[in-house]
């Protein structure tokens, strides 16, 4: 499963949970549900509320082919949406709403990430968690 692509994916906040569950359904993430594929909070000006969530991954051509097929509702028969609380319509809306940018794996990931955010008019949101110091 050698990776050949740098991939940035962004999903609207209202579709984040479905998109994350979809990643679990296709075996790219796992419990605790809904997984944590889309972990970078984004918004137009970097302030809350978060309007989108994003991620960067290194991937195969087969993964990208699968993403493209999913936009048409075409999934391998082995994918069991119900196990993850998804309907086919849920999966379709999540797949169709996904922004996917693909570059050669040689690109510096942060450059790719920054490029896609700029093109999408999005900025990372700083959500500082409380100081735990357990």
């Amino acid at each position: 499963m050698t990776m050949i692509h740098s991939v940035v994916m962004i999903i609207a906040a209202e579709l984040q949970e479905k998109a994350s569950l979809l990643e679990c359904a296709i075996g790219k993430d796992e419990a605790p549900l809904p997984g944590k594929t889309y972990v970078r909070p984004l918004s137009p000006d970097g302030s809350e509320p978060v309007t989108h969530w994003g991620c960067h991954t290194w991937e195969t051509q087969a993964f990208l082919d699968g993403k493209e097929a999913a936009k048409s509702g075409d999934y391998p028969p082995s994918v069991d949406f119900a196990v993850y609380g998804l309907s086919k319509d849920d999966a379709h809306s999540a797949a169709a709403g996904l922004i996917v940018s693909v570059r050669d794996i040689a690109v510096r990931p942060r450059d790719h990430w920054d490029e896609v955010l700029a093109a999408s008019g999005l900025v990372p949101v700083v959500i500082k968690t409380e100081d735990l110091k357990l």
Binding site: M3, M9, E23, K28, K36, T37, R40, C55, H56, W58
Partner: peptide, 26 residues
């Protein structure tokens, strides 16, 4: 790392080997 998108990748070159982290979410 259970989340596929968060996994680093293995790199090897010139006799050295390392894990590459993307600086975005790995």
């Amino acid at each position: 790392e259970a989340t596929a998108a968060a996994r680093p990748i293995y790199k090897t070159s010139a006799g050295l080997s390392w894990l590459a982290f993307d600086g975005v979410d790995d």
